[in-house]
Simulated assay, not measured.
Amino acid sequence: MAPSTHRAPASDADPAAADSAPAATAPRPGRRAALRHPLVRHGLWAVAALAAVAALTAATGPVTDLRVANVGLHLLAVAGLQFLVGTSGQVSLGHGAFMFVGSYAMALLVVNVPAMPLAAGMAAACAAGCLAGLVVGAATARLHGPYLAGATLMLAVGLPAIALRFPDLLGGANGLAFATIGAPPFLAGAVDDTQWRAIVVWTVALIGLVVLATASAGRLGRHLRALRDDAAAASLSGVPVGRARVTAFVISAGAGSLAGACQAYVLGTATPSTYGLSLSLVLLAALVLGGLGSLWGAFWAALAIVYVEAAGTELAHALDLSTDVRNNLPVVFFGAVLITVVLAWPRGVHGALSALGRHRSTPLKTGDSR
């Protein structure tokens, strides 16, 4: 009689044989596992967002395209501030100063090295902002709360005055004007200059957002959230407090500087009055309006900065107000919207939308009278 070819089940098999099997039976990481990686997932979202922006700008006019570009660069600036304030818990009142660094770095490069590619100019402006963030972060690593806010406030007040101190290099109060790079020749006729600027700004902004989202989802983000919740406990758990805080400043400053470079590219000029204290305060106020702790909050904040102030400007022109009132009404209008939103939704617009989504997704219990 032939010997039986029946094999014992895996649970009854010899343990030694079972130990030699995993090399042939263990599942290998596949395409689905790769798509779950934060960098890949955020990159796919960025590609989809850029396609949506391209379609939107193709269907609108120059005025809307310019506003779309402004939303993109303010989104990047507020997202960098979100990483510092919302993730690490460090309050900064000088984020506009880093935008000043990026704007003037971009302007100086275009004026003095006109043949430099746009991507290289953006990268150099980001590097200048990261260097400034490293200096400020190292100098304020031991400060927190109102002391840190006061130090960054001095930065926001003092740094734009450098342009007035060195007028030959930085143009003084008039700033630096330069010719921006338009659409490439092979897109002539298909894409106008304002549409091209919006696409460039959103490409840069989305690259920055992918970096910020990936850093926030990784080990650095976990360390920063631990510091935000309890610095003493995080230090006892092995988190390098000083290094993590300085790194957060470097990344935040790099994002702000890149946003300033985008603004200089869109406007074709860099002026010190654009980056005064009011800009830093508006960025922080808009972050509170949009909602702390999420990049979606930065998106709502950017929309508020651009469109609420635009509505205030249009209202001032419609009422035929004096020049002084007309110049200040958009800020007052933005403040009124901020107060209303914070009173109605203390966690900002994104917090309110998240709460609404959770409420709608929660099934009602049997017998619930709601």
Rank of each mutant, 00 (worst) to 15 (best):
M1K: 12
M1L: 13
P3T: 13
S4G: 05
R7C: 13
D12R: 14
D14V: 09
A18W: 12
D19E: 15
P22I: 08
A24I: 13
A24V: 13
T25W: 11
P27D: 11
R32S: 13
A34W: 15
L35V: 10
L39V: 15
V40M: 08
R41P: 01
W45C: 11
W45T: 14
A48D: 07
A49R: 07
A49L: 09
L50Y: 00
L50E: 06
A52T: 02
V53K: 05
T57W: 03
T57P: 08
T57R: 00
A58P: 01
A58F: 12
L66G: 15
G72Y: 06
G72T: 05
L73C: 01
A79P: 05
S88K: 10
L93A: 09
L93Q: 02
H95A: 04
G96E: 01
G102I: 06
A105D: 00
M106Y: 13
M116Q: 10
P117G: 09
P117R: 10
A119G: 12
A128H: 00
C130M: 15
L131V: 14
A132M: 09
V135I: 14
A138I: 10
A139I: 12
L143K: 09
H144G: 15
P146G: 10
L148S: 06
M154Y: 12
A156I: 10
G158A: 15
G158I: 14
P160K: 08
L164V: 13
P167H: 08
L169N: 10
L170T: 05
L176K: 03
A183Y: 07
A188T: 14
W196H: 11
I199M: 12
T203M: 02
A205I: 01
V211S: 06
A213D: 06
L224A: 04
L227R: 02
R228G: 05
R228L: 07
D229C: 05
A234L: 02
L236H: 13
G238T: 00
P240C: 02
V241Q: 07
V241L: 09
A244Y: 03
R245T: 04
A248Q: 05
A248I: 05
V250L: 09
I251G: 05
I251W: 00
S252Y: 08
A253Q: 08
A253P: 01
A255F: 01
S257H: 06
S257N: 06
S257W: 07
G260K: 04
A261P: 08
A261W: 10
C262K: 11
A264M: 04
T269K: 02
T271F: 05
P272I: 04
S273W: 11
T274Y: 07
A286D: 06
L289E: 01
G291F: 01
G291I: 04
G291Q: 02
W296G: 04
G297Q: 05
A301R: 03
A302D: 04
A304L: 00
I305Y: 00
I305F: 05
V308R: 07
A310D: 09
A311L: 11
G312F: 01
G312Q: 04
S322L: 11
T323I: 14
V325R: 14
P330R: 04
P330Q: 02
V332S: 10
F333T: 06
F333W: 03
G335C: 08
A336C: 15
I339T: 09
T340L: 13
A344H: 07
W345K: 11
A355M: 03
K365G: 14
T366V: 13
T366H: 15
G367Y: 04
G367S: 02
